[in-house]
Design a binder for these strands. Structure first.
Lengths: 254, 254
DNA sequence: CGCGTTCTTGACTGCTTTCAAAGATGGTGG
DNA sequence: CCACCATCTTTGAAAGCAGTCAAGAACGCG
């Protein structure tokens, strides 16, 4: 298996996400494909981008998992958000921007340049929608960490990640790749790895889901969603995101 | 005192913030002044904007405190971010956008329409910078709630709020208005009001700061910043935000 | 002065962390 | 194919930070 070229199907994940955010014309899709012919790779554990550095060129994630992180002087670490295939980084309409956060590769990550929005209006819309969605996930992360207990955090976060993977065609209704160590999970959830481990076992015992070997199996996504009152993220009246995933859990708990 | 017109000095707060984010030409400033002649008021405790509703017109906060909040079915509440004078709400470049969060007035809030960026390029830049800064504060909120204990959260949050108020000329080096109940603070910090109360007393006893009667007194901002390794938010190499406020706390703790 | 909201306090519970060590897993080289 | 090593997962016991419940004090307002 040659690792020097990006196989075409990788690009499809990104195209799938972006075109579900805004209808893309042929030219826009072609531009993405063209950009993907010059991929850049970042090995696992290495930084894709450093906080406070001049921002790198706008990029599309073609493959791999990364995370925006904040590192503290005493070694504590908080994952601010996940960066998944189809996501954009370094998009902003400012002059002389600085990277707001460090982004670290959790697995090997493949990116390519994001075609300029100026050249493709459709892409501009997709980028804007992507930004809005990213923002919505930040809000969710705050609410999750601020008011949920470990059990709720874990379930809510897994459902959210599943939703995002569904958008790029990388998950199925009840199975999603989840190549994170429990320590990473802990950093994302504001917990310790020990407690993540115990919480994971609890959910496993209940038969609701099973996370191991880099894969999450959702045995009863509907029930999980009800447990934490999970609703798919929505940023536009026109484009319900997550349509592939959960039915709306609007049955009154009564 | 007549409450039916917006006195000119209120507008100045917003102009101060926006022009520190991007240099504003006369026309842009005039446009803001013009917009401010048609203010809208929202009484304390009422919603400025409801999550999931079609987004209201882009607005500038002229006066008052508001907050983006997430309410849970069981009564729990999390404040996602503060909305202060000079802040913008409802700015986004999408079609058919939905409000990502509810915004509730914590005190009476006065807003006005935000002049269209299309008509004033300088405003467009200011809006973009404002958005980037808002984003930076979301990241901080996640890190704060995810990895800080109550003591650190309180100090860090107060320093951040002070920094933001300094930007609009509403705070001085060691005093800032803080018209929030301890319950609101708790909702912002992901704590309970009882614990906020106890933490507040601890900081007070240490003589570091004093929060009461709607005003925060910072007796030793430098020391407080060192305690939580606080650094002013920066979004651009060109525009160091918070220059009015803290010196960089770069002395190695040794 | 009376009332409602906010602040304060105490005792108790409990979720989560900490520390340490044992067990599993996976990849590597002999 | 197995030994070996590093990394990751699992477990137990103990301590601590923060939450809960309840009631009294203080404050602001009409």
């Amino acid at each position: 298996m040659k690792t020097h070229t990006v196989s075409a199907h990788l690009v499809e994940n990104a195209v799938l996400r972006l075109s579900s955010l805004a209808p893309l014309d042929q030219a826009a899709v072609a531009a993405i494909h063209a950009a993907a012919r010059s991929p850049r790779r970042t090995p696992a554990h290495r930084e894709v981008m450093a906080e406070g550095a001049a921002v790198i060129e706008p990029s599309i994630v073609l493959a791999g998992w990364a995370a925006r992180v904040r590192n503290f002087a005493d070694g504590r670490r908080q994952i601010l958000s996940l960066v998944l295939p189809g996501d954009l980084i370094g998009i902003c309409n400012q002059r002389e921007p600085l990277a707001a956060t460090t982004i670290v590769a959790l697995t090997e990550v493949i990116l390519c340049r994001a075609p300029a929005a100026a050249d493709h209006p459709a892409l501009g819309e997709a980028y804007a929608a992507s930004g809005a969605l990213e923002n919505a996930y930040l809000f969710r992360q705050i609410a999750r960490i601020g008011r949920f207990n470990a059990y709720e955090r874990l379930i809510d976060w897994l459902l959210e990640t599943r939703e995002r993977l569904l958008m790029v065609g990388l998950a199925t209704e009840n199975s999603a790749p989840m190549p994170l160590t429990q320590e990473c999970l802990a950093d994302a959830l504001g917990l310790t790895s020990v407690h993540v481990n115990r919480t994971l076992q609890m959910v496993r015992r209940e038969g609701l889901l099973d996370l191991r070997g880099g894969t999450a199996k959702f045995h009863d996504a509907q029930r999980l969603a009800e447990l934490v009152d999970y609703r798919p993220a929505r940023i536009s009246a026109a484009l319900p995101v997550g349509g592939t995933g959960l039915k709306s859990a609007n049955t009154k708990a009564g």
